[in-house]
Design a protein around this nucleic acid. Structure first.
Length: 229
DNA sequence: CCAGACGTTGTT
DNA sequence: GTCTGG
DNA sequence: CCAGACGTTGTT
DNA sequence: GTCTGG
């Protein structure tokens, strides 16, 4: 699954992914958690251009009347997302990209939970497949929220966890973002596990949840990586 | 018909 | 909003 | 996902 | 143990 991730790449490099979109300054965050604002790109219906948005992580359907519902909707299974009542409307018309450059999975060991950081081998930023919603029933201002799709773990991640977030290749951005693209099977085909040979894992400091979201020590390698599996 | 759920993960 | 269960 | 709380009453 | 908040 994906319950914590990072976005620490300098904003100028992130902007290179989207030449046509104005990207605001994005502070490095080494520990992005549910309910926080995540950096996203989306395209609204009947509007030609894409836009950058900050979205609250934890999808709250338009009809939800309890904000608690959103904090549990941090992931959507790609295998069932098109049918689930909480996600299917967003899947049809409100798909988005969530900017990231790595994510954490927690490996249970005899000595406790060991955070493992997973990113691309070249550590470049990438996009996670997301959905977004707008809810106006709860607060005076409309609340825009999102969720991250998950899929089966690839062979690199499988020893740590059986699920991983959907990473989209740049040549799939167009279809994923287009609210008028209706081919459900084609969309489903975008949600495959990312190539293991292009990714890397490393055990990192257990202080990831103590040192603070903006602290690079989140990614300090630990010495025990070889003993973990 | 109305009432109530609407989700994922990991663990047992 | 829409489906399921009673 | 993890960390932290997990309660009520009366008074300010 | 389980829920809530971040």
């Amino acid at each position: 699954m994906c319950g914590r991730f990072t976005l620490r790449t300098p904003t100028a490099s992130i902007a290179n992914l989207f030449e046509d979109i104005a990207i605001p300054e994005i502070p490095a965050n080494f520990n992005i958690a549910p309910t926080q604002k995540v950096a996203a790109v989306r395209q609204r219906t009947q509007q030609p251009s894409r836009e950058f948005s900050w979205l609250r992580w934890g999808l709250l359907p338009a009809w939800a009347s309890d904000i608690k519902m959103g904090s549990r909707m941090i992931n959507a299974r790609s295998e069932t997302v098109q049918e689930k009542p909480a996600f299917r409307a967003a899947f049809k018309k409100r798909r988005c990209l969530i900017l990231a450059d790595g994510f954490y999975e927690w490996l249970a060991t005899p000595h406790g939970k060991q955070p493992i950081y997973i990113c691309l081998q070249d550590e470049r930023p990438f996009c996670l497949a997301g959905l977004w919603e707008c809810n106006s029933k709860l607060e005076s201002k409309p609340l825009e929220t999102c969720t991250i799709l998950t899929t089966a773990a690839n062979p690199l991640v499988a020893p740590i966890h059986d699920r991983m977030p959907v990473i989209l290749r740049a040549d799939h951005f167009d279809q994923w973002l287009d609210p008028d693209f209706k081919d459900a099977d084609a969309l489903q085909n975008l949600l495959q596990p990312f190539a293991a040979q292009e990714m890397a894992t490393r055990a990192v400091s257990r202080n990831v949840n103590k040192v603070g979201y903006n602290h690079p020590d989140c990614l300090t390698p630990t010495a025990t990586q070889g003993e973990l599996f």
